[in-house]
């Protein structure tokens, strides 16, 4: 009886999540009257604006991941190694982007870095892209920091660092050859979440007027019937591909097999 109840709950949960997806996919395939087709997908993929915004967001995602890794890994490493007493403060700071809405952050940016300010970043494309990159990095901070911190806690950072030091290694070498490879799976999990966040982000990109995928999704949603659903399915596929890739990396990471 207990087993039946468990299966029933699981089935209910799966139905709750899967049914809308099936509906969405079914609708995205119904552009041609009376039969299923990929017309909506073909239209979306042929749209030069799709390619431009998608490409822009992919590049921004990769750059955000790079900034996140360069910022978070050394910070989390140093906090763990030398400043464990400030961990609550760092955790509080990294949680702020979840509390402060993106719209507040971006208005702050515009106010601080507008064309009449001492650092007029919004006055140039390069500057605005840089602002957006920083915004994205801020948004991804809670996820990236937590992922890396969890990864670091799983290894004996202090002893590994001291062992490497006693063998003549300096800080850069320790981070690159000892710490990073051992938190790679954690970094990747943070990176994939970051990728998903940046690909779907609307507020910052729209208010800074950059050609990102988020505003394009909104634009299509407001003006077309079938194409937005095709786009939503594509976005889901990207997220799932990221998750699959993450699983693959975890599985093929030889030295982490012991934990499994």
């Amino acid at each position: 009886m207990k087993k039946f109840a468990a299966w029933a709950i699981l089935l209910l949960g799966v139905t709750y999540f899967v049914l809308p997806l099936i509906g969405m996919t079914e609708f995205s395939l119904s552009m041609r009257r009376g039969e299923y087709s990929f017309d909506a997908y073909a239209k979306v993929l042929a749209d030069p604006q799709f390619r431009q915004t998608f490409g822009y967001s992919v590049i921004m995602s990769l750059m955000t991941i790079a900034v996140g890794v360069l910022l978070v890994v050394p910070t989390a490493f140093w906090v763990q190694l030398r400043l464990p007493q400030i961990r609550p403060l760092i955790e509080f700071i990294t949680l702020l982007p979840l509390v402060i809405p993106a719209i507040v952050t971006v208005f702050g940016y515009i106010r601080l870095y507008n064309t009449s300010s001492w650092l007029p970043l919004t006055g140039s494309l390069w500057g605005t892209n840089f602002l957006l990159l920083m915004g994205y990095s801020t948004l991804s901070l809670p996820y990236m920091y937590r992922a890396v911190d969890t990864g670091l806690r799983a290894i004996d950072v202090r002893t590994l660092t001291e062992a490497a030091q006693s063998l003549g290694a300096g800080w850069v070498l320790i981070l690159a050859r000892v710490i990073m490879p051992n938190v790679l799976v954690a970094v990747l999990s943070g990176a994939f979440v970051t990728f998903a966040i940046v690909m779907g982000e609307f507020t910052m990109a729209a208010l800074l007027n950059r050609p990102a995928f988020g505003p394009y999704l909104q634009l299509m949603g407001a003006n077309k019937a079938y194409e937005p659903f095709a786009l939503a399915v594509i976005a889901f596929a990207i997220t799932w591909a990221c998750m699959g890739l993450f699983q693959l990396v975890t599985r093929f990471s030889k030295h982490t097999k012991a934990a499994g």
Partner: peptide, 28 residues
């Protein structure tokens, strides 16, 4: 510490998990 040319063995082994035995031994 990395300038002292001192070898150290720790209680918790402290082998680098991402490196093979040979790579660990050759690290220094």
């Amino acid at each position: 510490p990395n300038q002292r040319n001192i070898g150290m063995v720790f209680q918790a082994y402290a082998l680098f998990p991402n490196l093979t035995v040979a790579q660990n031994v050759g690290f220094g």
